[in-house]
Simulated scan of single mutants.
Amino acid sequence: MGWNSIYLLANYWAMAGWLLLAFAPRSPRILSIVMYAGVLLLCLVYVVLITGFLTGGIDPGGQGGGDFSSLAGVMKLFDAPGGAVLGWVHYLAFDLFTGMWIARDADNKGFSRIAQVPFLFLTLMAGPVGLFLWLLVRERRARAQAKAK
């Protein structure tokens, strides 16, 4: 399977998780599907890829080289098709996990599903932006709930 196929498969897989998270009932079963069939499998792909790259068992393509010790080293890692896919799967896994946390937190704080959609969409498209805005918005409700206890 080529890098483009892995990239597309990971994207479609993550999108299925996001659609369940945004539109399916938030039953424990649905949340488990998103967590284990979505996040866990994306994490597994990441583990297989990074282990393969580090051990030399999988060729990331490109000219090789690169490391995490400098910006130039990281840029070289992402120059390889496999490195770009690895980074993308990393984003997909963590953004979906973050979206799941936001959805569950919003449910617990009494936010409607419609009010959650912008935060979930922003988390899907620009992870830290959605999380940042959610953290700002949730604070007021969290304090009110703490006072009520």
Results as ranks from 00 to 15, higher is better:
H90M: 06
M35F: 07
L122D: 04
G64L: 05
R104Y: 00
D105N: 13
P128H: 10
G56P: 02
W134N: 06
F23G: 04
Y91H: 00
D59I: 08
L44H: 02
S70N: 00
M125E: 01
F97M: 00
T51R: 12
L20M: 15
A148E: 11
R26A: 11
M15F: 11
A148T: 10
G83Y: 03
A16N: 10
G73P: 06
S70W: 03
L96H: 03
R113K: 12
A142P: 01
A16E: 12
P28C: 13
S32A: 15
Y36H: 15
S32C: 07
W3G: 07
R138H: 09
W3N: 07
F111R: 08
V89Y: 02
L19M: 14
R113Y: 08
V117A: 08
G83P: 09
V48D: 07
A93V: 05
A93R: 01
W3E: 07
I102P: 02
Q145V: 03
G87P: 01
L41T: 14
A106P: 02
W134M: 00
A72N: 06
I50M: 04
F121G: 07
E139L: 10
R26Q: 10
G83T: 01
L122T: 09
P128R: 14
A146K: 11
F78P: 08
G130D: 07
I102S: 11
M75F: 03
P81F: 11
F97E: 05
M15A: 14
M100F: 04
L20W: 12
D67Q: 09
G66Q: 05
P60C: 07
P118H: 01
L49E: 01
